[in-house]
């Protein structure tokens, strides 16, 4: 095993990521075996649909976790953006393209709010993101008068937004997500933004004394996270069509689990976009697999909860082992 781990290609790709890919393939066969049928294109399509919007949330929260913080508001923010933009589109008759931009704007505004609360007002991210989670749920409900937001279904006028998820059988959502993931990798590893975000997670005081405006860069991590939640809302409405107020909490756990599973350290300073991407695919396949095995979707919450606890435990253990 040590020899395998020390091969240059394996070291370059990252042993953990290869293990995650192995887990993904293994899960496919295990779910196929226990469900009594091979998971087919329909199951894969369902998994990819979920991966589309979950992926944007997970990519965004990776930036926040890299600073050593956390954002529990991403799921409700995504739903809130879908609710507000949906109502603007359907009830107020705004053009579709403006409604889609509004999804991103709403997400971005919540990111700005979180950034101000955490970076400039010094609130613990744990608390402030809980507050904005409630705020997002409330704003979404109030704006829609606790009514569902019904986006145009396939075949109806103004339904081209669904091309962000699938177009003539091509999983455009996955391609869209991949492009954004590559951009995030470049931002995190090759730009000043990413370097400062990671450095803040690694040693905030040293970065501050170096003359870097830590508050600005930390706030930017939350803004990126919120904006990606807003982009996630576009794919979310593309998949779901009917957005219900008050939802979204369950996506937080899934997104955070994807990040930690992918090798992003909860202590900050270490982040892997590639790992997060594979983590998202694992979580999405998990949900589809559980349903294929005949369990109710509720069981997915139990399993995801266990996975989050195990992933965080493994993160702490592996940090301790490195010492």
């Amino acid at each position: 095993m040590e020899n395998f781990k020390n091969k240059p290609l394996i070291k370059k790709l990252g042993f953990n990521r290869i293990i995650l890919c192995g887990v993904l393939i293994l899960m496919y066969f295990v779910f196929s075996l226990f469900s009594g049928r091979m998971l087919g294109s329909g199951d894969i399509k369902n998994a990819l649909n979920m991966a589309d919007y979950l992926g944007f949330l997970a990519l965004g929260v990776t930036f926040v976790i890299a600073t050593g913080g956390i954002d529990f508001s991403i799921g409700p923010v995504m739903v809130c953006a879908g609710l507000i933009a949906g109502r603007l589109l359907v009830t107020f008759g705004w053009p579709l393209w403006i409604a889609l931009i509004m999804c991103v704007v709403v997400g971005c505004l919540f990111g700005v709010l979180n950034g101000i609360l955490v970076a400039y007002m010094g609130l613990p991210s744990f608390i402030s993101s809980m507050a904005s989670m409630m705020l997002a749920k409330g704003v979404g409900s109030v704006f829609t008068h606790v009514q569902n937001s019904n986006w145009p279904a396939s075949g109806e006028a103004n339904s081209w937004y669904k091309y962000f998820v699938t177009y003539n059988g091509i999983p455009t959502g996955l391609i869209f997500l991949l492009v954004v993931a590559v951009l995030c990798t470049i931002i995190l590893n090759k730009t000043k933004i990413g370097r400062y975000i990671l450095c803040i997670g690694s040693n905030r005081e040293a970065v501050r004394l170096s003359g870097v405006d830590t508050r600005k860069w930390e706030a930017l991590a939350y803004i990126i996270c919120g904006t990606l939640a807003g982009i996630g809302a576009i794919t979310y409405v593309g998949v779901i069509t009917q957005v219900q107020p008050g939802l979204g909490d369950e996506f937080n756990n899934n997104a955070i689990a994807s990040c930690v599973m992918g090798g992003t350290s909860m202590a900050g300073g270490v982040a892997s976009i590639g790992g997060t991407f594979i983590g998202v695919l694992i979580i999405s396949l998990l949900r589809v697999g559980i349903q294929a095995m005949g369990f109710r979707p509720d069981y997915q919450y139990i399993i995801t909860g266990i996975i989050v606890a195990l992933a965080v435990f493994a993160d702490i253990r592996s940090s301790a082992r490195k010492k």
């Binding site: 370059k12 990252g14 590893n189 370097r195 990671l198 450095c199 690694s202 170096s210 003359g211």
Partner: peptide, 23 residues
Amino acid sequence: QPVDRFLFQCVNFVQLYGTARIF
């Protein structure tokens, strides 16, 4: 503005160690 560019290199090098695995 008060800066310490050598101090920043300390924390930067810790990050570069991680980045250097792929790049």
